[in-house]
Structure formats: structure tokens, C-alpha cells
Nucleic acid binder design. Structure first.
Length: 357
DNA sequence: AATCCGGGGGT
DNA sequence: ACCCCAGGATT
């Protein structure tokens, strides 16, 4: 009876999912806190990359109360290496809000969930369905790909109208009987079966898939090309004195906001960096060049960096630049740092010994 | 509507 | 080299 009302698309996906679902930790719970944590971690992040962070974070903060009470420095250190660090800030902000304003109880509907910092249309739909059984369709990269191919939709998935169109379609397809299972199934299907380079030969939907029938698998989904990456050059000065290192926390609306780093000048040359920061000039007598790091690639920037180690005698006196501070190397280890700096430290024994004892 | 925000893995 | 990843916030 009710099966006849389901679109065969949903029926096939759910059947496929019964045979192919991976055993993932966030699928073993209905706790909205744990599900929320997993969804924030997995935003634009592969499962294999996010999994260790999910274990670390849920162990460090078993409940929303633990997270709300946490020191943000600790959270950033745990988030180190995962990228998109505003997620960590919004995670903390939301935890405090849920504890302080909602008595520790998560909102239980899409409409309320999407009001939380760091929770957008995808994440709100995911939590609402997985934790509360609401029939809100998730629309992530997998869903765009599957629907575009299966129904032959040529809308540019980066166009602002795309989300509305694909969400409306997914809303028609999602069964009211077990919406959470459908959401899990469609994403798993996109990840394992209808991947960017799919195996159509084994696909249970191939006979009714427009893209397969018309041989347009490689043309769908339509996605406009992104701009070329911006190229930047950072000159790092690791200034050490009396067992302490000069550091600062990045604050500007720029990459790595909230992370810590050594004295940094954005400049195409060492000479220009020194000229623009005259206090450096007398310090350079003590400078030793460190191994030139490879180009650090972000999704939208390429960063070329160079670094100098400046170990200053105890009696050497100079005025430290604004917003910088001295920190013991043992404390520096406890701060969140960009992967570029982690690589720099790893690649230079001298630096490693200073910072790690 | 455009742009920005990381890092890593697959092809 | 290019693409994509359980996207969201800001301008």
C-alpha cells in the first residue's frame, strides 16, 4: 500500500542502503548533541578525515555541558588541522547558547535548528531528521550529484537558485515513513555508488537514470568553474629569547582566524619585510634561514612562505610589535596552529627542539 | 549574487 | 593539475 506511493527512486535507495551502509559512530545514536557534533565536523570534510576528530571531540566533551564549559583555546587545539576554523568558534557559541538559554536541550525542529550559529540548511535538515525524525531532506554535494544525474537537471549547482530547486525535488522524494533512513541512504549512495567517477555497471538505478541513458554522466551535475587561487607570500620570523617565543593570534578577517603563529609579514621578499618593520633590522644579525617550506595549498589560496630563526641573546633588547606576546615553548604546543606551521616545525630539527624541548 | 573560509584524498 | 568533500557566513 504505502510502497506504491513512494517514488521508486526512494525505494531503490533504501533497499541499496540496507546492503551497503557503513557502520559509522554517529549512526549509532539519536543524541542530537552527538549528531550535531558529527555534522559540523563533516561540513566540507571527508569522513576519513573527520572521524578521528569526532572521536577526539566527543571524548573531550561528552555532553553539551562539557563543551559549553570548555576553554576555547582547548577547542581550537583539538580542531587543529581540520580547517574552516570558524566551525570551532560557532560550535562553542552554540554549545553555550544551548546550555545557557535552552537548559541544555537542543532545538528539535529544522526551523529552530537553522537559527544556531554554524547550522545552515544542510545541517539543520540532517539533525532534524536523524535526531528527531523530521522529514526534512538533506541537500549536500552527494544529493546535488545524484539528483542532477538521475533526473537530468542542468541547473548550475553553484547558482543561488539551485538549492531551492533541488530541495523541492528532494522534498517530493523523501518518504514520510522513515525520512532519516532516506537521508542517510542518499548520501551513502552518493559517496559509494554515484560518486564523481561512478560505477554505473553495478548501479541499481541505471535503467531509469537520465544521465546514464543519455551518456552524460561526465557532464552532470553542472558546476561553474571556480576562480584561480590567490597567491600570497608569508615571511615568518621565529624570534626566540630566554626560552620564549614571540607569537600572536590571528584576528583579522582572513585565513586561520583564531589560530596562533610566529611573527609574520606578508611580503614578496625578505628585504621588503625588514624595511616595513624596522625593528627587525638589528635582529637579523642572528638570523638563520630555515628550510624553505613547500607551497601550502588551500582551496582558494596558495601560500609561499619563507622562515628565519632568530635566537636572541638574553641581554638583547627591542620593542615587540603590537599584538604580539612572548610565550613559553611548552605553552605554544597547546595552542591551535595552521598546518603550514606544523609542517615548518616538522621539517626543521632546530625549530622542533626549541619548541618541543 | 559573489566571495571567503582549510586541508586532504581521489583520479 | 583538477575535482570534490555530510556547507555556512559575510559582504
Amino acid at each position: 500500500m504505502k510502497k506504491a506511493q513512494r517514488h521508486p527512486f526512494a525505494e531503490t535507495l533504501i533497499t541499496w542502503y540496507a546492503d551497503h551502509a557503513r557502520d559509522l559512530p554517529w549512526r549509532r545514536t539519536n543524541d542530537p548533541y552527538v549528531i550535531w557534533m558529527s555534522e559540523i565536523i563533516l561540513q566540507q570534510t571527508r569522513i576519513a578525515q573527520g572521524l578521528p576528530y569526532f572521536y577526539k571531540l566527543t571524548e573531550a566533551f561528552p555532553s553539551v555541558y562539557d563543551l559549553a564549559a570548555a576553554d576555547e583555546t582547548t577547542l581550537f587545539r583539538l580542531w587543529q588541522g581540520l580547517g574552516y576554523y570558524s566551525r570551532a568558534r560557532n560550535l562553542h557559541k552554540t554549545a553555550k547558547y544551548v546550555v545557557d538559554m535552552l537548559g541544555g536541550k537542543f532545538p528539535d525542529s529544522y526551523t529552530e535548528l537553522i537559527k544556531l550559529p554554524g547550522v545552515g540548511p544542510y545541517t539543520a535538515a540532517a539533525i532534524a531528521s536523524f535526531a528527531f525524525g523530521e522529514a526534512s531532506p538533506v541537500v549536500d554535494g552527494n544529493v546535488y550529484r545524484i539528483l542532477a544525474r538521475y533526473f537530468g537537471i542542468e541547473t548550475d549547482i553553484l547558482h543561488s537558485s539551485a538549492r531551492k530547486e533541488f530541495t523541492a525535488l528532494a522534498q517530493e522524494l523523501i518518504p514520510s515513513s522513515d525520512p532519516a533512513r532516506f537521508n542517510q541512504a542518499i548520501m551513502e549512495f552518493g559517496s559509494l555508488q554515484c560518486s564523481p567517477a561512478p560505477d554505473c555497471g553495478s548501479c541499481p538505478l541505471r535503467t531509469s537514470c537520465v544521465a546514464h541513458r543519455e551518456n552524460r554522466i561526465n557532464q552532470l551535475p553542472v558546476k561553474s568553474k571556480s576562480k584561480p587561487q590567490r597567491i600570497r607570500q608569508f615571511q615568518y620570523f621565529i624570534i626566540e629569547q630566554d626560552g620564549k617565543v614571540l607569537v600572536h593570534q590571528r584576528q583579522a578577517k582572513d585565513i586561520w582566524q583564531g589560530l596562533w603563529e610566529f611573527f609574520c609579514v606578508e611580503s614578496s621578499s625578505i628585504e621588503e619585510a625588514i624595511n616595513s618593520h624596522p625593528f627587525l633590522s638589528p635582529l637579523m644579525a642572528h638570523a638563520v634561514a630555515l628550510q624553505a617550506p613547500a607551497i601550502h595549498v588551500l582551496s582558494h589560496q596558495k601560500i609561499i612562505s619563507a622562515a628565519w630563526l632568530l635566537q636572541l641573546p638574553a641581554e638583547f633588547s627591542f620593542k615587540i610589535p603590537q599584538d604580539y606576546q612572548w610565550i613559553l615553548s611548552s605553552e605554544f604546543e597547546q595552542l591551535g596552529k595552521p598546518v603550514l606551521l606544523l609542517n615548518l616545525i616538522t621539517d626543521n630539527i632546530a625549530l622542533k627542539e626549541i619548541l618541543e624541548g
